[in-house]
Design a protein around this nucleic acid. Structure first.
Ligand SMILES: [Mn+2]
Ligand SMILES: [Mn+2]
Ligand SMILES: [Zn+2]
Ligand SMILES: [Zn+2]
Lengths: 148, 148
DNA sequence: TTGGTATTGATAATCATTTTCAATAGCAGT
DNA sequence: ACTGCTATTGAAAATGATTATCAATACCAA
């Protein structure tokens, strides 16, 4: 996962490889968390004081368009992001704690299969061409249940 | 579906039965569409020129808390709403056209079953208490595919 | 090295939803 | 029907996330 790999991916589609983009990617690569644009921005400020929040948003957009980023709506109008890497489970869903905002990854083979099947069915039955889907559970995480 | 039914539901939880709330409910009952707060507001203006958008939001909140309203995030930060009635399919999902905003109801027995199972699993396995979930497909509807 | 242009960051603008607050109206108790 | 308490209302301002604008800058192909 050397960064010239990412560099080439950007260059390959006519985009440029820049310092802000490298900083954002390094952060996304190194973290295991699901971060919001502002969280990414604030985290980068320490090492890259000149970076702008706007640039974070733009880079996340590009990454999403390239298919390397997963955008997770929190249901509050805010989104969190996670990089899609080779090693990461491509198909997983999320448990979102409405109390603390924590996001828990969760994989279910049956569910993934069903979604694939549904995509097919919806195309033939409703003529609906699926480009994306959301599947999130909302609730109270174990941690938050204990402290009340 | 006489409105004194709804009146009692409101009164039952210490809430008051008011003209704006009756107007909003009558609209939600009579429509088969999935409407946004602003769409509801604009539609009511004709018959109830004094109504405020704020009140629409507040009434939708109450209905959601009472468990009679389904809130559907469009992925753009905007939400649409639909009343949950006895006759309506309680468990259905949505196909959201990212081109025209149309929402298509869609029911899948297998999927509903799987979600019920998942709720159980998540509770025992992750200690996660589910209060709600989102399951939406995004894509291009038949209508929009033809006109391009 | 250079020129064209993609990108950047500061700032202002959007847009949906919330908050605030004084005025009003529902309704329980009389 | 009257009264008083307080939930509700609507206008206006505030919020919070995201986007648009724009002049300055930095990539990078040639
Ligand atoms: Mn994840
Ligand atoms: Mn529906
Ligand atoms: Zn939590
Ligand atoms: Zn459409």
């Amino acid at each position: 996962m050397p960064s010239h790999n990412w560099r080439n991916r950007f260059r390959g589609r006519g985009s440029r490889w820049t310092a802000p983009r490298e900083a954002i990617l390094n952060l996304l690569i190194s973290t295991s968390k699901h971060m919001s644009a502002k969280e990414i921005y604030r985290s980068l400020l320490r090492i890259y004081p000149a970076i702008g929040l706007t640039t974070v948003y733009r880079t996340l957009d590009v990454l999403e368009q390239m298919g390397y980023l997963n955008k997770i709506p929190l249901g509050t109008g805010e989104n969190k992001y996670e990089l899609i890497t080779d090693s990461s489970e491509t198909h997983h869903h999320h448990l979102i704690c409405t109390q603390c905002g924590r996001i828990i990854d969760y994989t279910d083979f049956e569910e993934s299969e069903l979604i694939k099947k549904a995509e097919q069915t919806l195309k033939t039955k409703h003529g609906f061409k699926i480009t994306d889907y959301n599947f999130e559970f909302y609730g109270i995480c174990k941690h938050c249940q204990e402290r009340r």
